[in-house]
Simulated assay, not measured.
Amino acid sequence: MMRVFAAVLTCAMFSGSAIAANPWEKFDEPTSGPASSIGSYANGCLVGGEALPLEGDGYQVIRTSRERYYAHPLMIDYLVELAKENKRLGNGDLLIGDMSMPRGGRFTSGHSSHQTGLDADIWLRIGDKQYSRKARENLSPYNVVDMQNYKIKAQKWTNEHAQMVQLAATDKRVARIFVHPVIKETLCKADWPEGRDWLRKVRPWFGHNYHMHVRLHCPKGDESCTPQAAPPAGDGCGKELYSWWPKPKSEQEKKKEQEQLLLAKSTTKKPAKPVYKDQLKLKPLRCQDLVTGTLQ
């Protein structure tokens, strides 16, 4: 009966116009006990997570005030090992962005994934020096894609970027790496003497023009974790990739865009504050227990 009441209470917390605050942001530390990624990447939570130390051998965590540097221990180990190997190859520090919150769950703004401690963003900006924590709060993104002409910025994209993606993807723990379609195309066109199998994991996705998003497989033996279907067979460098290219716009569509742009410029309304958007998704029961305090 108490479990039913808790579920009803959680539904009330996640529904209705009264909800604007994100309950997952109230936690400032992980739970204790064995680590478990509960639910799916875009609808779940994290038990027994760990914080990635904010500086390490070959990496620096950025924007630490957001407190999104927690993850499943599997991800912590992966990032530490990746950074060391990347450094051994003579490359600069990895700049680690969003991972997960202390107990996972949905961010108020930004990604809908990163909920189970198995996702991490690695910026394409190379850490060429040791930044202070204050400086790391305000680092500018490093966009390597010419969005207007839909091609790579040759003056920004380097072999170090390509090597970084390859190194990240060849690890067996990795399920997917999301990059902008133009970055995927650039990798597809490169010569890879040691094999191209890892390109299957590199998936095109909009918005990833200044960072790559690494996603790990569900931890072995964790039955609470919902895996994602495997990527399609092949290296993903053909027709599937080019389906992401923008289609030519008609004159009517261009005119409509111009009208909308002029209307936006003439509007003086303040932008709306971000609202927590997970109200309609019912979390797994163990995640509901985290929010209600039943599970500590």
Rank of each mutant, 00 (worst) to 15 (best):
Y69I: 10
L216A: 12
P271C: 10
I38T: 00
P193D: 14
K277M: 04
E50D: 11
A168G: 02
L82T: 06
L282E: 06
V145R: 08
G293I: 09
E223L: 08
S65T: 15
T64R: 08
V182P: 12
H72F: 06
L290S: 05
A120S: 13
E50L: 14
I19H: 12
R125L: 07
T64E: 02
F5Y: 00
Q163T: 09
R106P: 08
D57K: 08
K265E: 15
E223V: 09
P231S: 04
G90V: 15
C225A: 00
T116K: 05
N86E: 10
K189M: 03
H211E: 00
P30K: 12
R136F: 03
P227V: 14
M164W: 14
A168F: 11
W205L: 09
N86R: 02
A233Y: 07
R106D: 00
I96W: 07
A42R: 00
A18T: 13
V165N: 07
F5L: 04
L94F: 13
Q148Y: 14
P23T: 02
Q288C: 08
A12K: 01
V291W: 02
T268D: 15
R200Y: 13
L118K: 05
K84I: 03
H211G: 06
R103N: 05
R106Q: 01
R66P: 08
D93W: 03
Q296S: 01
E25K: 12
K283M: 01
K134F: 09
E240D: 13
W192Q: 07
A233H: 06
A7V: 01
E137R: 11
Q148T: 15
P219N: 10
A190F: 13
A42M: 00
S37K: 01
A120L: 04
L46D: 05
Y41V: 00
L94C: 12
N86D: 08
S40Y: 02
A18Y: 13
E160G: 13
P34R: 15
I177K: 12
E50W: 11
K189L: 06
E259L: 13
K277P: 05
A135F: 08
K84A: 01
A162K: 13
K87L: 14
I38K: 02
P204S: 04
C45S: 04
E85M: 13
E257L: 15
C225N: 00
K189C: 03
K87A: 07
D28H: 09
C45N: 00
I96D: 00
K265W: 15
K26P: 02
A120Q: 05
